[in-house]
Design a protein around this nucleic acid. Structure first.
Lengths: 224, 224
DNA sequence: GCATAAGCGGAATAAAGAATCCGCTTAGAT
DNA sequence: ATCTAAGCGGATTCTTTATTCCGCTTATGC
């Protein structure tokens, strides 16, 4: 094993060569600026705005990310990675509580990344992460049902649409309210609790969920 | 009272002069085309696409609507008018059932107008209609509570966020699924039914709803 | 300290799309 | 049947914004 001081190959997969220290810092600042600017003005904020917010020129942005889309894709990737982390952590929650824990945690990340939520379900480069995530929530749901925290006729697709619905609220309320999506989450969770009254509509077919990944996407924008 | 055959002043408010028959038809076709193209490709679909979908040139579109925004605003206006109609009709429902009826009806209109949903809550020209609508849903909620169909701690703002949440689903699933938003509506309604278990989060303040009208907006787009 | 590959800023370029203009066409009043 | 204001299409103009290019600067390994 090489000595720690010689870490020229940072980790397992040293994505290309190593960046110069200042360049690495700029890359981070760019991503952070992008998150913030896109959250504020939506994805149609200009590349120049992002670069300036990061305190660099557009040239710098383009040396690191070949296109605007690539920049957004990286935000999406980091988001999905965070989601997978959270869902994994949630699995450690006390029996039967994992799902609820995860729902609130996911709401927080979505809110923190509201600029790029639009691309999350359609981005084709993170399909793998999305599959992992989906396996995990299926397990959380099963656990919740086993502990009588959730009605037995709830399906994984109900969780998918729950997350989409929270996205709608987060995009609408922007940074005005953390309460809004939490309240809706609470109401939905209440609706998912075991009940003798059947739900008036059937769950969504898995296939629909998969197809929607390929076709629909949404942009965000914000006015003054 | 003038004879019906001389209706040079069509109705109460004859919005400007009367359009030539072909021009009036084109105007309708443009609005319909806009609804469809925006639903398909989002609001960033080009004006030219809309004009062509309507079978006319861009010049024709611009003679009728001074800007692209004006066209969108008209879609929004017609949407809001429809919403007000629906909420008024829902008030005729059997006692205690009006709210549920309206929620499903609103889902349908939202789905039929998914292209321009993004502008609905921020459009400043339909504030009046929105206020009317809001008075009505307050009444529907009160009625539902009176008939024990909805929990007493539900607030009007819960309905606001419910509608935003449905929007999120409709925008994500596009025309793939009518089931998706209905299922979420069913779950939310279940969560809003009277229950001894209090909701984990407080309702959203009215003020937040009003502020979000002025600041946040969202665009839609669709790929492939 | 020096050499130099890596980085940087921002002007210049290019493409897309909104809005305008103008010569030709037609509904519909007489 | 005729006349003309209202309409029409679409080429053209004007903006906005992504992306490229290039001469100057600076970490970093020796």
């Amino acid at each position: 094993m090489p000595s720690p001081s010689l870490e020229n190959q940072p980790e397992s997969a040293p994505r290309e060569k190593r960046l110069r220290r200042d360049a690495a810092a700029n890359r981070e600042r760019l991503l952070e600026a992008a998150r913030s600017v896109f959250a504020e003005h939506g994805l149609e904020a200009s590349v120049e705005d992002v670069a300036h917010a990061a305190g660099v020129g557009v040239g710098t942005l383009y040396r690191r990310f070949p296109t605007k889309d690539a920049l957004i894709a990286e935000l999406v990737r980091e988001f999905m990675e965070k989601v997978v982390t959270l869902v994994t952590e949630a699995a450690q929650s006390p029996a039967g509580r994992g799902l609820e824990t995860f729902i609130y945690a996911l709401g927080e990340v979505q809110a923190a990344n509201r600029g790029c939520l639009a691309r999350i379900w359609t981005d084709q480069t993170t399909t793998g992460l999305r599959d992992v995530y989906r396996e995990h929530i299926a397990a959380l749901l099963k656990d919740a049902k086993a502990h009588d925290a959730v009605r037995v006729d709830a399906s994984v697709t109900d969780l998918d649409i729950l997350f989409w619905s929270l996205r709608g609220i987060i995009e609408t309320t922007g940074d005005l309210s953390r309460t809004a999506w939490r309240r809706q989450a609470a109401i939905s969770l209440a609706g998912l609790r075991p009940s003798p009254i059947a739900l008036a509509d059937p769950p969504v077919a898995e296939e629909i969920i998969h197809r929607s990944r390929q076709s629909t996407l949404v942009h965000s924008e914000r006015g003054s």
